[in-house]
Design a protein around this nucleic acid. Sequence first.
DNA 1: TGATGTGATCTTGTATACAATCTATCGCCG
DNA 2: CGGCGATAGATTGTATACAAGATCACATCA
Lengths: 234, 234
Amino acid sequence: MSKSEVRPLRRSQQLREQIEERIVTGVYQPGTRLDEQDLAASFGVSRTPVREALIQLAAGGLIDLRPRRGAIIPETSAERLYEMFEVMAELEAMCGRLAARRIRPDELERLQAAHRACAAAHDAGDPDRYYLLNEAFHEHVYTASHNGFLGEQAAALHLRLRPYRRLQLRVRDRMGASFQEHMEIIEAIAAGDGERAAAALRAHIVIQGERFTDLVATLRQLNAQDKPAAAALR
Amino acid sequence: MSKSEVRPLRRSQQLREQIEERIVTGVYQPGTRLDEQDLAASFGVSRTPVREALIQLAAGGLIDLRPRRGAIIPETSAERLYEMFEVMAELEAMCGRLAARRIRPDELERLQAAHRACAAAHDAGDPDRYYLLNEAFHEHVYTASHNGFLGEQAAALHLRLRPYRRLQLRVRDRMGASFQEHMEIIEAIAAGDGERAAAALRAHIVIQGERFTDLVATLRQLNAQDKPAAAALR
DNA sequence: TGATGTGATCTTGTATACAATCTATCGCCG
DNA sequence: CGGCGATAGATTGTATACAAGATCACATCA
């Protein structure tokens, strides 16, 4: 929203980010058809940059762009969701394995600082704040892997799973459990134990039977009460 | 090139594929600036679909699209290349691990058929044909993982690494070694041994010290004799 | 002689106009 | 009364026009 455009970022880039945000936060629901003209009008630009933004989103898999049929937000099936989490778990595990071997002292320091920040949010019982700081924690692990490409891929998928990840905090005492798991992850990385770090991060991603079922159940609950899902996600 | 357009594929989609092909096969060299007007003229369309194609390529990381500076093909550093292969190895390993547990009899049959086809090309000493069939072999492994999302990610990265993978066959008796490795992969998958399949696939990707150094060396050799690289890659 | 500033030209980014195709409504026929 | 087809409206895809910024060359000055 800040109009301080010191660096003239490409218009379609900004648009992509804004539309992305609305999809990821659930303002635009799955199944919604995004009308180019409406978007153009609502953002005060012509259709051209809107189209370019949509193409970028389609390339990232966030929307489904079928020829002559327009852009629709795909309804992510439970199966598809499971697949994505399965990959996410492995990418995180890989980051952890590499980080345990490659992390620098200053990076470890920053990771621990991020963990302490999470601790504060946890103690304060503030899930929203915890959610935010959790993102930072994971970002630090990605960086510590010292594989830039891997970090980008992990961050991209992380973003795409954001709505579901957030949802997950609604499950009873997920925050506490998550915090415990972070502890284990840090310890493994600090100890330079790659396999243990990988295992800890893999376990940290919600794909194991119960947790994933919880997630899907919560999702169905939200969908059942048709529209409020957007508000609930925000 | 076939004009049998029964299904009206989007124009920018076709363009993306064609430009992608030229990048991946080395017709357009790293460092090249892709001029929108030139591309439009050479494909006989206006700048609009060309731009849309470029945006897609940029989203996939195949080109670098900087605001007001145009599209340039990034010079992939050895470090970056190593990072990408490191991720590729892990994705392949994951496919193998899952495939060992989930492959169906008919899929295993097809995988073995693909392997036999590779054998024929190997015996005939035809690296070009082997290269092509090798792609099919890996595609079968992706499918057998029964994780559609993973399969897509793996295929996308596979495509992006295509030029280098191809280059690698120039190394002495790489084809023979590759073939041996396929054998081991198939055996592990058929035996349902996920960890062994994962290890075999991880080892199959050229990132280990010597092989990777060979690759980079070959690359430098080609770059040294400036332009012929394109021809050599094709 | 080299560096810096200014202007011309070229390229990208955005808007608008037009063409092609898809959807939906209405009417017709069984 | 229901199903099918044609036409009108709307929406996407492509082309073109115009605006804004970047590059490069040239000239001027130290």
